[in-house]
Simulated assay, not measured.
Amino acid sequence: MRVVAKFGGTSLGSGDRINRAADSITAAVEDGHEIAVVASAMGSTTDDLLEEITFEADEEDRAQIVSMGERTSVRMLKAALSARGVDATFLEPGSEGWPVVTDEYGEVDAEETRSRALAVADALDAEVPVITGFLAEGPDGSVTTLGRGGSDTTAVMLGKYMEADEVVIITDVEGVMTGDPHVVEGARNVGEISVDELRNLSFRGAEVVAPSALSYKDGGLDVRVVHYQHGDLLTGGTSIEGQFENLVDMRERPLACLTVAGRAIRNQPGVFQSLSAALGESNVNIDSVASGLDSVTFYVDDEEAERAENILHREVIAREELSSVTVDSPLAVIRVTGGELPNQPGIISTIVDPLTDARINVHDLITSATSVALFVDWRDRERTLELTQDLF
């Protein structure tokens, strides 16, 4: 099996942990597996270096400085592997055979990186490459970086381009947990999670796998997260399933928009809960929700509009901070979903501008970490779908 193993800063944070990492790599090699290693900077080295740059420095100098953490890690890990009789070499920007390159705009040159990654893969039966994470090489040979979480990105990108069977992210958590074990009681490991679920969690604060890395995962590449204390690269942890695809779809049935107005209701505890609970207890499904300082809007099936209006009206009468409920229908919703959306500056204007040019009014727009939902008049649904599909 061909595996790309990425060791995070915590898993390389001391000599003992480097030894543990080297032991797990050695065991996998002795079992006949092809292993490529991606190494982060030891501990908090990168953050420490960034904090010490208290002077004016251009991007090239900053990149050279912060690269020292990863450059040290690959040398330490390569030496530990060599001490165990493993044929290993380290690769960093400037090395012969370095795989990750960017174009003149600082974006990964996918074609060139794929070609170089395959060349590294061809040598895996002879040696273990230990590759600096986070770093790339510009077209002029300069050192560039892949941004926050760049080591994860390096690993999954190389796993894809090296045609690996699996990418293993070795970190300081036992995979994805049901909650933050430092905050909640009884947090446990999740055996499997979809790439869509994890991408949303990652964009909302879960520090397990960098969102930029998940963009490179395809359906044929397994990705797994394990704790550095586990000791076995090939078992345990959380398996990340599936892949991202840009998808444009339209809800087949019309929606009704019910807006409840009130006085600063966003700051009133329990208002949103009472409104949504009232609908839920009456088996009215909520498709989407939007809120402002003085209003909450629920999108429900148009056939449920009258019943939902009566339910919400009872809540308006019961709570003095609420003023009125109104209904607008029929509306259509077109959703754009895709793993690359958050990485595209100006994506909202890219989607909305063609609708503006076509004189289509966007009734509402709701975004999440990986999707954009457009609410338009029902009569504009086909044209909106056509214009949006043309973009993706």
Rank of each mutant, 00 (worst) to 15 (best):
M1P: 09
M1H: 11
M1F: 01
K6R: 07
G13Y: 05
R17P: 00
R20Y: 02
S24T: 09
A27L: 11
A27P: 02
E30D: 11
H33E: 15
A39Y: 11
S40L: 06
A41G: 14
T45G: 10
T46M: 15
I53D: 13
F55W: 14
E59L: 05
E59Y: 05
E60A: 08
D61M: 14
M68E: 12
M68K: 09
R71A: 08
T72A: 14
R75A: 02
M76H: 09
L77M: 05
L81W: 13
R84D: 03
R84Q: 08
D87F: 06
D87G: 12
T89Y: 12
T89N: 11
E92V: 11
E96Y: 01
V101M: 06
T102F: 01
A110Y: 08
A110C: 10
R116H: 08
R116E: 10
R116C: 07
A119W: 04
A119Q: 15
P129L: 07
F134W: 07
L135K: 06
A136T: 07
E137C: 07
D140L: 03
R148G: 14
G150S: 12
S151Q: 03
T154K: 09
V156Q: 07
V156K: 03
D165V: 00
D165R: 03
I169A: 01
T171K: 00
T171H: 02
D172K: 02
D172E: 12
G175K: 06
V176K: 00
V176L: 03
T178A: 02
V184W: 08
A187N: 09
R188A: 13
N189M: 13
G191M: 05
E192V: 05
I193N: 00
S194E: 01
V209Q: 00
V209A: 04
V209F: 06
P211W: 09
S212W: 00
S212G: 10
D218P: 00
L221G: 00
R224L: 12
V226N: 00
Y228A: 10
Y228G: 04
H230N: 06
D232R: 13
T235S: 15
G236T: 10
I240K: 01
E241S: 02
V248Q: 01
E252D: 11
R253Q: 14
R253I: 10
P254N: 15
L255T: 01
C257S: 12
F272L: 13
V284H: 07
S288M: 13
A290M: 04
G292N: 07
S295Q: 05
D302Q: 14
E304T: 14
A305S: 15
R307G: 01
V316R: 08
A318F: 09
R319I: 02
E320S: 11
S329W: 14
A332G: 02
A332V: 04
R335A: 07
G338T: 01
L341S: 09
P342H: 04
N343E: 15
Q344P: 02
Q344G: 00
P345S: 13
V352T: 14
V352F: 10
L355S: 13
V362Q: 12
V362I: 15
D364F: 11
L365M: 13
A369I: 07
A369Q: 07
R379N: 14
D380E: 13
R381C: 08
R381F: 06
L387F: 13
